[in-house]
Amino acid sequence: MEHRHLGRSGLKISEITYGNWLTHGSQVENDAAVACVHAALDAGISTFDTADVYANTVAESVLGEALKGQRRESLEILTKVFGPIGPKGHNDTGLSRKHVLEACEGSLRRLGTDHIDLYQAHRYDYATPLEETMQAFADLVRAGKVGYVGVSEWTAEQLRAGHALAQQLGFQLVSNQPQYSMLWRVIEGEVVPTSRELGISQVVWSPIAQGVLTGKYRPGAEPPAGSRATDTKGGADMIKRFMDDDVLTRVQRLKPIAGDLGLSMAQLAVAWVLQNDNVATAIIGASRPEQVHDNAAAAGTTIPADALARIDEVLGDVVERDPARTLESSPKQREV
């Protein structure tokens, strides 16, 4: 497993991050979740990503239990704040000072740690002044409860404003966590160039496009039993944008490219996002340990230029590139 610097900071994280969205506390049983975390550790993964909103805080608790007994200094634990948690009361969501400080305490308790390596604003909060949010993050950094601060799915303009405030308050904004894959490239036009300028890395989620880029979904066929496309707890909703026969047909045509490189389809997808030098790490999820080992093997892989060109030719116009799609990610009104 190789490691990369996170933004313009001295912190290094593993090229592959294990994430537990839609799995821990929801899609898989706890013993399977623990087995996947241990498989990640065995594969050399040192970075683990979660969020308080995942399974309404349960995912953090499962991850904390799974990491119990590990040397804390050898791990990088990432979590996020924004989404509605607990009983979903009027202050149980957003990026107000009250919610950020209280949510951090809850995450520390559930994760069983005294500090969070990277604390991320899960979305942009239009209902709270950015100055209030960034001051709360600054105070957590000074208190030693948070090492570094990042965001998720922020636009280039929002990144620029957040970065400027962070500098004024004496800390670094080091990362952004966007969706990014061969099929979803909306960050390339604006977010990535701005991030390079500001010294911000991408911590990308869904590099396998919710499993579509494994090739297991075939055009005109029913989804495999137990797959994300059949998950009624949220997985099916997230994957449906890719469940189009044209998309699935083109993905099948990637198999010879992966084969020529000696890679599985999942490895090709993960390695593809890591070719972008602004990407610090690719977050993988898994319901079985063997999936972790397969995905982790993509670390350190270089895809030749001719293969990258073939991928672009095969996928053609099914790739989503519109930068405006990032703006859609943050709700203009809070859920509660």
Score class of each variant (00 low, 15 high):
His122Asp: 11
Ile85Trp: 00
Asp306Leu: 13
Gly170Tyr: 13
Leu263Met: 08
Glu15Cys: 01
Leu22Phe: 05
Val192Trp: 00
Gly170Cys: 08
Lys68Phe: 06
Gly300His: 04
Gln135Glu: 13
Lys68Ile: 06
Gly234Cys: 04
Leu95Ala: 07
Met134His: 06
Ser330Val: 09
Pro256Met: 05
Val62Ala: 12
Arg241Leu: 07
Ala229Ser: 12
Asp117Leu: 11
Pro223Asp: 02
Ala39Tyr: 13
Leu263Glu: 01
Thr133Ala: 12
Glu188Asp: 11
Pro207Met: 03
Tyr18Ile: 03
Gly147Asp: 09
Glu328Leu: 13
Gly89Gln: 12
Leu140Val: 08
Gly147Trp: 12
His38Glu: 15
Ile16Phe: 01
Asp277Met: 00
Asn91Ala: 03
Ile239Gly: 02
Leu6Thr: 00
Arg218Lys: 15
Leu95His: 05
Leu173Cys: 07
Val336Ile: 12
Pro323Leu: 05
Trp21Cys: 08
Ala209Pro: 14
His90Asn: 09
Ala33Met: 12
Ser46Val: 15
Asn276Pro: 15
Arg4Ile: 04
Leu165Tyr: 05
Pro129Trp: 07
Glu131His: 09
Leu67Ile: 09
Ala269Gly: 06
His5Val: 01
Glu290Asp: 11
Arg185Val: 03
His24Arg: 07
Lys216Trp: 12
Arg325Cys: 07
Glu290Val: 08
Tyr180Phe: 12
Asp277Cys: 00
Thr113Ile: 14
Val141Thr: 10
Glu102Phe: 02
Thr301Met: 06
Leu95Arg: 02
Leu268Asn: 04
Ala299Thr: 13
Val319Gln: 05
Gln275Phe: 00
Glu105His: 15
Gln168Val: 14
Gly69Ala: 05
Val28Asn: 09
Glu132Ile: 13
Met134Ile: 12
Ile257Gln: 12
Thr302Trp: 01
Pro129Glu: 07
Gly112Arg: 15
Ile208Ala: 11
Ala136Val: 14
Gly300Arg: 04
Ala166Met: 08
Asp277Val: 00
Pro256Ile: 05
Val141Asp: 15
Lys233Tyr: 02
Thr281Ser: 15
His24Leu: 11
Ile45Leu: 07
Gly89Thr: 04
His99Ser: 04
Thr57Met: 08
Val62Phe: 14
Leu261Tyr: 01
Ser26Asp: 05
His122Arg: 07
Val273Leu: 01
Leu101Glu: 07
Ala282Phe: 01
Trp154Thr: 03
Asn30Ala: 14
Val318Leu: 09
Leu78Ser: 05
Ala225Gln: 10
Asp322Glu: 12
Asp306Asn: 15
His99Trp: 03
Ser46Gln: 14
Ala43Arg: 15
Thr50Trp: 10
Leu274Cys: 02
Gly300Glu: 05
Glu105Val: 13
Val279Ala: 00
Ile208Met: 14
Gly235Val: 04
Glu335Tyr: 08
Glu15Lys: 00
Gln210Arg: 07
Ala297Gly: 14
Ser14Val: 07
Pro129Leu: 10
Leu274Phe: 01
